[in-house]
């Protein structure tokens, strides 16, 4: 591989990286402007346990 080819690969790699970061930033901005802010941070710890308990009508017990 010549130095010129290696340099070309470097440019391509930089271009792909910039493209990926550009896509990520645009998508994140789109989400921020489209959805309600409270909805985006509405996740709560323990949702899974509550769902499981509701499904099985179960109470905590030992193994």
């Amino acid at each position: 591989m010549s130095d010129g080819t290696a340099q070309l690969i470097n440019y391509v790699v930089w271009a792909i990286s910039i493209g990926i970061f550009g896509w990520l930033i645009i998508d994140a901005l789109r989400i921020e402007t489209t959805y309600d802010r409270d909805l985006l941070v509405s996740s709560r710890e323990g949702e899974i346990e509550k769902e499981i308990q509701a499904e099985h009508h179960d109470t905590p017990q030992g193994v």
Binding site: M1, N10, W14, S17
Partner: peptide, 24 residues
Amino acid sequence: QLHPALSPTAFVVLTIAFLTWLNY
């Protein structure tokens, strides 16, 4: 190590960019 003219910084950034995209 494949070729001294290849930029390690470019590949460091590409690695992080690609994997970040995948996780996102």
